[in-house]
Each structure stands twice: as structure tokens, then as C-alpha cells.
Nucleic acid binder design. Structure first.
Lengths: 307, 307
DNA sequence: AAGTAAGATAGGTTTTTCCTATCCATTTAC
DNA sequence: GTAAATGGATAGGAAAAACCTATCTTACTT
């Protein structure tokens, strides 16, 4: 006993409408015997007679009617299948799984997602947080399609595109002498204590670089596990740190609280980017999503970030 | 560009779960190259890459995940297809189209249908009325699967099964001398006027036969188009007629109204049966339905009809 | 750096699908 | 009532699809 094939269903669907072999065969562009054989095979596969053959037109059996209806549904679903790859050329659709760094995502994504949903209601994003280090791993393991994280990424199995450059500001305790300054130079940090996130985050590297360049001391006895934790450690007077502009803009009110934000001069920056497996190729949808994020960033955070 | 096949979907479904070609191929009982080819064909047919091939397991692309989900649905629907013929061996299910004679259906079917629905909730009946003559025609044209009508049917393209024998009673105007009698013999009808349905109904034949045998006069100037019309003509004193026991039992109250019902002696009967196209074969479901109707008739109309 | 493992490719065989020709039964025409 | 026409079934052989074994290529291991 052979299995059902879509070909059989396609043929039967046409036959069930035309109710005539020769006619249906002509519509299908095949010969009448071929159609006969396929319908016979379908009947055998199902173990049921589907139609009474009579010279004056076919009559579907009750089972035949059911099979015709079900076949119609199946063929329609197959039709849908064929369109899965298609329209996504100029529309974002389907489900993308996006990994997001906790130092970027929470301050950028809320606005992006709202506008994204309005612009592409067919697109679904599954978002999961993780440290940049874990996320790259999960990306390669296939748990994410894309990762929103800090650049640079120097791996030849990862492709990426640049999104924007984000200034890093200095956060100092309010009572600290540097708190009132319009801007701070590296040299001003000599001898100060700097706090940092743990080494899974790229930001920690930038803080330690800054220490090396300025003569500040890296407080490696306490490692923040989030930007919020870092800010709170600063407010307790444990030291100063670098905070990304988007975070500072959304979570630290100027002139309020125990933490003051000051510019660095010359500026320090970090780069945000969108990364994916090289083996994914470079799907148009990824680039389109990146474009969209850049757009939103330029519009919503003008002045805060640089393209 | 070749069309999608179910084989491709079946293979891809397994592959999308196993995420390994060799493993999936073993599960499917085919070689790894065969699987490769089929998956490649599916990708080509869809115009999309479905998975990233890597030594350490596959990763489905976003499109691949959608295709896998949709394929699953399709395969499940195909599974349902295969069961359409199956269980109906000992269960009535699906949709049957039943033609029903207006002289039998309305008085028999209400009770049958109620119990049928309780016993076989999966069964749907589409019921349409028509004169027996039209119904046989419609049956042959494929508009009905089955017809509930009066026997005999002497055609070699129609099969049938006997359901029950139903007495025919004499309906006379209340003021007529025969109205009070316990029973009436044929001879008593000599010279009387008999009313009949039009010739599309088999009952009309029985009335005219009775006229011939008894010496009664057939009033062919007025033909009833329904049993109700016939009863009303009797009540107006236009003549007498034969009414089936089920109709008489449900529509004519003894001792009430202008029509009296009396038994014939010896009894007159008609036969009810279920008929279908010979080319339908003899599906178990038809016989099962006939059994059910007989059962209900015996139980609900005991004494009124005879098996 | 060599070995291993997993998917891709090649060549040939088997199975499926299809076509033409023909058959047979029913319906239609004369 | 017989002959022609119509429409589905059957047969045989050709074309296409699917499959298998053997081999290749490359990424991951050891």
C-alpha cells in the first residue's frame, strides 16, 4: 500500500469539480489514462471508492465529497507554504528570534518595537536577554537568529552590521568635586576609582582601557551585573563609571538623585550593531531590520546617538 | 520549477525534529543522499533556504521554522484524510443526502432523526423532499445518496431494501354512512367516489387499483398534491380516500373533526423502503441506516407498522 | 596535523508517472 | 433496433523521479 501524494489530491480536486475524466485531464494537461491511474491509486491508498464512474458524469460518493473538501483544505495550506519565502523580499514578516544585550536593548527596543509593529504587523520578534558573551554562543548554537550587541565582533563565523555610535558619559557621585564640571578630561581621572560591569560585557573592557589611559584605579573587587547596579554603586560613593548615553538619558535625571552625569572630552563612544551567523547568509530581512533600527534611533534619539 | 510533494514535507518534518540528516534518513528508512536531494528539491520549490547545514547539527532558518510548522499541519490533515473511509465500517459518520417522500418522511423522520443524532452524532443528514418520481430521477443524477420512498421499485439501476409495511386506512367524511363502521370491505365501496394524489405518488396507483377492484369511481377531476390536501378534500365531502397509518395516526384525531378513519378488511398495505443507485454498490452505511430506521419504526410505531 | 564525521555530489538502478493505442460499455442518433 | 459516438478502463513501452552505493569535501577532533 503506497502513500497518498499531493499529486493525487491535486488531480482529485480538479476532477471533483469537473466531474469528468477527460475534461479534468485536459485541464490538468495530462492524458485521461494518467488521471485514471492516479485516482485509482488514491482510492486504493484511502481504501474507499471516491466516485461512481458513469458515462453521464461522475457522482462522488459521500466519502468522496469529504475527501474532496479535505483535499481542498490541504491544497490551500500547501499554497500558503509556497508564499512563505516570497513577499518577505520587501516586507518583514514571520518570526525572528532576537538576542538583546541588557546594556542596549531595554533603552532602545521599547520605541523600536512599537514602531516596528505599526510598520510591519506581520513580523513577530521573540526577544531574549543575555550577556553579550552568552548571546554570541547562543547565536552560534541556533537559539537566536540575530543579536543586538556591542561592536566590534572579530569572528569570522559572525556577520554584523553597524547600527549607531553611542557616547559614554561619566557618572560620578553627586558630592564628588567632578560632579559640577561641564566636561572631564582623561587626566582628571588620575587616582580616581572606576567601577565596571563584569567581563562578559564589552563595556568593562572600555572602562579598564580608560583606567589604563588615565591612571585611574579599576575597582575589580565589585563588579556590577547591570547598569542599574552600577549606577547604585556610584550613588553610594564607591567610585565613578561610564554609562551609555541612552541609559543615562532614560534612567538618570540631571540635577536629581545622588549621581551626576558629565561629558568626557574628547568623547568616548561605543558602537551598537546587529550580528548573525555567517552561515545564515545575509537575508534581506536582517538588513531591513537594521535599517529600521537605525531610522528609529536617528529619529527618536537625535543628538544622543550618532550614525 | 517542480511542484512541492508530500514526500518532501514528510521528510522535512522528520528532519526538522532530528536536526541531523543521517539520523533523520535512518528514521525514514532511506539513505542520507536521498534525503539531501529531497530537501534540496523542497528548498528549490519554495525558493528559500530552510536550514543552515553545519557539522554540528542543523539550524532552521526563520522560513524553515514556518515551513516546518505549516508542514506539520498539512501532514496532520492528510492523516485525517486516511481515516475518512475507515471507521465508517461500524459507525455512521459523514454526510448523507437523503431524499424523502412527503407521504412518509414527515411522519417517520422526526423521531428517527432525533434518535439517530443521539446514537451517531458524527452523522449529518441533508434531507430534501420531492415526489417519488422526481426523487428517483434526482437519485440517478447524483443529487441524493439515498431515497426514502414507497416500494416496489422495479428498475435494474436502483437497489433498495425493505423497511416496513404500513396499513392504508379508509378516510371518509364524518357524516357518511360508512363513518361509524368498525371495518369496511371492498364491496362496500361500490359506487362511492375515491380521491387520490397525483400520479407522481405511488399511493395514487393503489387508490385506482382499489377503484377497479371495488367498483368505486376515481375522482380524477381533483388531484391532491399532499396528504393534508387530500384529508381536507375528504372533510369537504368530496369523497373518500386511503391514508397511510402513520399519517392518519399523527394528523387525524379519532372522533374529532370532519374525517373518520376506518380499517379495511382485508387490510391494504403499502411498503416503505430505502433506495440507492445500483452503481453506489451497497455501502455498509446504507444498510446500517436502514436497520436503524426499522428499529425506530418497530419501537415507536409498534402496532401501526409491520416489519 | 591527521583522523573523523556529516553533508554534498556522481553514476547507475529501480520505481513511478505518463503517453499512445486499444478495449469495452453506455448513451445517443438515425 | 442497430450503428456511431462517447467516456472511462487497460496494456505496453518511454520518460522522469526517487533511491542506493560509492566517493568527495570540509569542518570539527584529537
Amino acid at each position: 500500500m503506497s502513500a497518498i501524494t499531493l499529486r493525487q489530491l491535486r488531480y482529485f480536486s480538479v476532477l471533483s469539480k469537473s466531474l469528468q475524466y477527460r475534461n479534468a485531464a485536459r485541464q490538468l494537461g495530462i492524458s485521461q489514462p494518467s488521471l485514471s491511474l492516479q485516482i485509482n491509486a488514491l482510492e486504493e491508498a484511502l481504501g474507499t471508492r471516491l466516485a461512481e464512474r458513469r458515462r453521464s458524469g461522475l457522482i462522488l460518493t459521500p466519502e468522496g465529497r469529504e475527501v474532496a473538501a479535505q483535499a481542498e483544505k490541504i491544497l490551500q495550506d500547501v499554497e500558503k507554504l509556497q508564499q512563505i519565502g516570497g513577499p518577505s523580499e520587501d516586507e518583514l514578516a514571520g518570526t525572528l528570534r532576537l538576542g538583546s544585550s541588557p546594556t542596549i536593548g531595554p533603552y532602545l527596543l521599547p520605541r523600536v518595537l512599537r514602531q516596528l509593529h505599526r510598520a510591519y504587523p506581520e513580523l513577530k520578534l521573540v526577544i531574549r536577554d543575555g550577556t553579550p558573551r552568552d548571546m554570541i554562543e547562543d547565536l552560534l548554537a541556533g537559539k537566536h537568529d540575530l543579536v543586538l550587541t556591542q561592536l566590534p565582533i572579530a569572528r569570522d563565523d559572525i556577520s554584523h552590521t553597524f547600527l549607531f555610535r553611542e557616547p559614554l558619559h561619566l557618572a560620578v557621585p553627586r558630592e564628588h568635586p567632578l560632579a559640577g564640571r561641564d566636561y572631564v578630561r582623561k587626566a582628571d581621572l588620575s587616582g580616581e576609582s572606576l567601577l565596571s560591569l563584569n567581563a562578559s560585557y564589552m563595556l568593562s573592557r572600555q572602562v579598564s582601557d580608560l583606567c589604563a589611559a588615565s591612571g585611574a584605579r579599576l575597582r575589580d573587587d565589585f563588579e556590577g551585573t547591570s547598569l542599574d547596579a552600577l549606577r547604585q554603586m556610584v550613588s553610594l560613593g564607591m567610585g565613578m563609571t561610564l554609562l551609555p548615553a541612552l541609559y543615562a538619558g532614560s534612567e538618570v535625571k540631571p540635577g536629581e538623585g545622588d549621581v551626576a552625569i558629565t561629558q568626557m572630552k574628547p568623547g568616548l563612544y561605543r558602537q551598537a550593531g546587529l550580528a548573525w551567523r555567517r552561515s545564515s547568509g545575509t537575508p534581506a530581512s536582517f538588513l531591513k531590520l537594521a535599517d529600521f533600527i537605525r531610522d528609529v534611533a536617528a529619529r527618536e534619539f537625535a543628538g544622543k546617538v550618532h550614525l
